[in-house]
Amino acid sequence: MEKILSVKNLTKKFKRIVVNNISFDVEKGNVYGLLGPNGSGKSTTFGMLLSTINPTSGDWYWFGKKGTDSDTLKKIGAIIEQPNFYPYLSAETNLKIVAEIKGTPYPRIDEVLETVGLLERKKDPFKTYSLGMKQRLAIASALLNNPEVLILDEPTNGLDPEGIIQIREIINNIAQQGITIIIASHLLDEIEKICSHVIVLKEGNSIYSGRVDEMTANNGYFELKADNNTLLINALEELQWFTSVKQEGEVIKAQIRDDASISASTLNQKLSEKGIYLSHLVKKKLSLETQFLELVKNTKNHA
């Protein structure tokens, strides 16, 4: 897979270290999440990658070329801060101004407005737009120059649930066009729904970089229920496939060992051989939130 971006030991120190020796790669055509709480170094990382902040040390390569020059910036669409659109001008006129700056032909304006669902509102003044519509117009602005990469810093910040869903759908549609997307967010749920890959930052340190579905080696867990849960618990513990077996209400949760590979049908067969018949059996994966908390906890333990 072609590398769009390669970051090597990037560090930024102000009065304290804000970004600490982070390294990661971004491959073409994927959606990457830069995940971490406020103050974890996400915006500073973007600032360095776009050459608006000078790094203390480290290197990065866009499209195989070191650093970020003017030619590279033409391939990138970015929203780092809320764009300054003119409030009394229409969305169309605002984008014409941006198009003049970027050297983009006017017909492209209708294309990007359609992408973000604002084509029917293009004649309306910017000041009449909701927060979600303003954010969508900002994405349209970033798409004007047909970028190969789209960088979004907290794109759903402050939006209501409907606005969040709209932005999520737009991002998915843009990704399907083959544009590589990098999103900074502190919202685990959004990263899980939008991104294929994630870089987790904690206090300026990268504690994980990889696929979302491989964030931990965790095999997930089974939810089970039987007429006699005491017998069920004893049987599960005897199988030695699980790191923990515990009852939560009427349901038994059995955490699968990392080195165990077991299907629901295999488990059902083993239990029926012991005379235990299940009324409920579901295999589940841990949510990204649970995996994130486990990851942070393990990092603390190894610190």
Rank of each mutant, 00 (worst) to 15 (best):
T72Q: 03
G163S: 08
V212T: 06
R211Y: 15
K283G: 08
N268G: 07
G29T: 10
I76T: 05
Y221T: 03
L118Q: 02
N219I: 05
L239Q: 08
L50S: 06
K96M: 15
V7T: 09
I174S: 00
L288N: 03
V149N: 05
E248V: 15
I233F: 15
R108Q: 14
I262W: 08
N146P: 07
P107R: 01
K285L: 09
L271R: 01
T156E: 02
F14C: 05
E2D: 13
L50A: 11
K66Q: 13
R257K: 14
P83T: 00
N84R: 04
L73K: 13
N21E: 04
P55N: 10
I199G: 08
T156R: 00
I183W: 02
G163K: 06
V200Q: 09
L271S: 01
P147S: 10
F242W: 12
N298Y: 12
L239T: 02
G39Y: 11
I171L: 01
H186L: 10
T156C: 02
L267Q: 03
S263E: 11
T290Q: 13
L49D: 08
I101A: 07
S130M: 12
F14P: 01
V212H: 02
E114M: 01
K253S: 11
G33V: 01
K15D: 14
K12A: 00
L95Y: 09
E148V: 09
G58V: 08
Q255R: 13
F292D: 05
N94V: 04
V200P: 02
N172H: 09
K42C: 10
K13Q: 13
L89Y: 10
P37V: 15
K274F: 00
Y221A: 05
E237L: 13
G204D: 11
S57E: 14
D259H: 12
F24N: 02
E223C: 05
T216M: 12
V282S: 03
T44M: 03
I53V: 15
T266I: 07
K66G: 03
G210K: 06
P155V: 00
I53L: 13
G158D: 01
I174G: 03
E169C: 00
A142H: 07
E214G: 06
K66R: 15
I276R: 00
D124T: 14
G178E: 09
A78D: 03
K297W: 11
V200K: 12
N301G: 10
L73W: 09
A217Q: 15
I199H: 11
T93I: 14
L49N: 07
S265E: 12
V149E: 14
D153M: 10
E192D: 12
I262P: 04
I76S: 00
I109K: 04
Q82P: 00
L293H: 10
G275F: 07
G103K: 05
G36R: 14
G58K: 05
A91N: 07
K123A: 12
L295A: 08
I151Y: 05
F126G: 02
Q177D: 08
S43C: 02
A91T: 04
L288H: 00
G163H: 07
I4K: 03
K193H: 03
I167H: 02
S141N: 06
I252T: 10
N146W: 12
F222R: 10
A142Q: 09
I179K: 04
I262M: 06
G178D: 06
L119Q: 04
V245C: 04
T72S: 06
S70M: 13
A217K: 15
F63C: 09
E100F: 12
